[in-house]
């Protein structure tokens, strides 16, 4: 609900999303995706959706990054694109 804050976070989101998709190292991509989730969490807290922000902080940035890293640990770390 504060537009300046909103604007800055939204501008950050696009490069972070592109970098998460473009990195060849999947472990790094998973970590950048965690950063993306944290930015989303900030954005939702700023827009007044505190419950959603809390859920995203616990789920998106914590647990889903751990799941991805567990999978990458058991498969391959490098991707072709």
């Amino acid at each position: 609900m504060i537009f300046a804050f909103d604007f800055i976070i939204l501008l950050f989101l696009i490069p972070v999303a592109i970098v998460a998709l473009q990195l060849k190292d999947l472990l790094a991509a998973a970590m950048v995706f965690g950063i993306y989730s944290f930015l989303m969490c900030l954005l939702w807290a700023e827009m007044g959706a505190v419950d959603v922000a809390f859920t995203e902080a616990a789920v998106g940035a914590g647990v889903s990054a751990v799941f991805m890293i567990a999978t990458i640990f058991n498969t391959k770390r490098n991707s072709s694109d």
Binding site: A17, L21, L26, A29, Y36, A49, S64, I72, T75, S79
Partner: peptide, 22 residues
């Protein structure tokens, strides 16, 4: 090409829709 990259893309799609709703 990579399946995990596809899943990251899927999650980004999902959060974008959540962004719309919020």
């Amino acid at each position: 090409n990579n399946l995990i990259k596809k899943l990251i893309g899927m999650s980004i799609f999902q959060t974008a829709i959540i962004l719309f709703y919020v």
